[in-house]
């Protein structure tokens, strides 16, 4: 038993050193680009689609991708970034788990002359020279798009025709960047239209269950709800359940606007239970590979790149639904 254990350990060690040799050779200049990507984890369908997009785009662009999953832990992410530095990859990209605490490891990357690209989430640092660019969604803009649709459709959204459009808002996790920014963008735009009023706002923690419970309460406490604005599809889907239980028709008796455009949300949109969805796209792989090639070639890139995103009406959703991946 002991012997086999020792044997196994030796094998494992041997394997490790072998793979280490292998990767350092790959890092050497043979013209192709090597990218180290440290993913947050696989916590949602959105994130899985994000991972798939990056892996597929890398294959298409002919970039050698080294991928690691941090399972929501910063120390894991720092470890894999360090290993990428040692392997001398050409470019490092990652989605930071949290905003702070990256300066040390990013300094190491800078000293090794490896450019760093942030995806989807930003880091909080005073030294912006530590990374080349940040590719991700603009949450404020998403909120603005949602608000703009409501302003444009204010007349039709006043379901009870009493002259005011009463909006209830289902916020994301309190204090999270998407929740703060989507709220802000929405409020900025609707303030232009005096008819539109946010009558109640509460967090549903980005979950269906949370959205349902908060909506149940709103249906009882807030009279004359015309519109629900949910910070993500899941809370909107929860609200649909609550509205149905109250004997009302979602999408008709109460209009629903959400952000994300995941498959379940799009299905509800195509069925007319949601009226408008602002996309928050995880498919930033192509843009990332593009930036990686430019950075390695020494070209200038803008320090903020917004993910290409669109919006969906029920008709557009019905069209897009068959090839929706996530």
């Amino acid at each position: 038993m002991k012997k086999t254990l020792i044997g196994l350990c030796a094998l494992a060690l041997g394997g490790m050193s072998l793979s280490a040799c292998g990767s350092s050779e790959e890092g050497a200049d043979d013209g192709s680009i090597t990218m180290g990507f440290a993913q947050v984890g696989a916590e949602s369908g959105w994130r899985t689609a994000n991972t798939t997009s990056i892996q597929e785009s890398a294959k298409e662009a002919g970039i050698d991708l080294k991928f690691s999953d941090a399972q929501q832990k910063q120390e894991n992410q720092i470890k894999s970034i360090r290993s990428y530095i040692q392997q001398k990859v050409d470019v490092i990209a990652f989605s930071p788990v949290v905003e702070t605490g990256w300066d040390a490891v990013l300094q190491e990357a800078k000293r090794a002359n490896i450019p760093v690209v942030l995806t989807d989430r930003a880091v909080d640092t005073e030294d912006t020279s530590l990374y080349v660019t940040f590719i991700g969604s603009d949450f404020v803009e998403e909120g603005e798009k949602a608000g703009q649709w409501l302003v444009d459709n204010a007349e039709a959204s006043d379901v009870d025709k009493d002259g005011t459009v009463n909006v209830v808002e289902l916020q994301g996790t309190t204090g999270s960047a998407p929740a703060l920014d989507r709220k802000k963008g929405f409020e900025d735009v609707i303030s232009a239209e005096s008819k539109i009023k946010v009558t109640a706002s509460q967090t549903g923690d980005f979950t269906r269950d949370g959205g349902k419970q908060v909506m149940e309460a709103f249906l009882q406490s807030t009279p004359k709800i015309d519109v629900v604005y949910a910070h993500n599809d899941d809370m909107g889907l929860g609200a649909i359940e609550a509205i149905k239980a109250a004997g009302k028709k979602p999408g008709t008796d109460i209009k629903i606007i959400t952000v994300d455009a995941v498959k379940d949300g799009m299905t509800a949109l195509a069925a007319g239970e949601i009226n408008f969805i602002v996309e928050c796209s995880p498919l930033l792989g192509e843009q990332l590979m593009d930036v990686a090639e430019k950075v390695v070639a020494g070209e200038e890139v803008p320090d903020r790149i917004v993910t290409e995103e669109t919006t969906f009406t029920p008709e557009q959703a019905a069209e897009a639904l068959p090839d929706r991946k996530y």
Binding site: Q171, S201, Q202, Q213, V214, A217, Q220, S221
Partner: peptide
């Protein structure tokens, strides 16, 4: 239920 009902701010 009380929190959304009496309108306590999310924070």
């Amino acid at each position: 239920r009380t929190i959304p009902n009496i309108g306590i701010p999310a924070e």
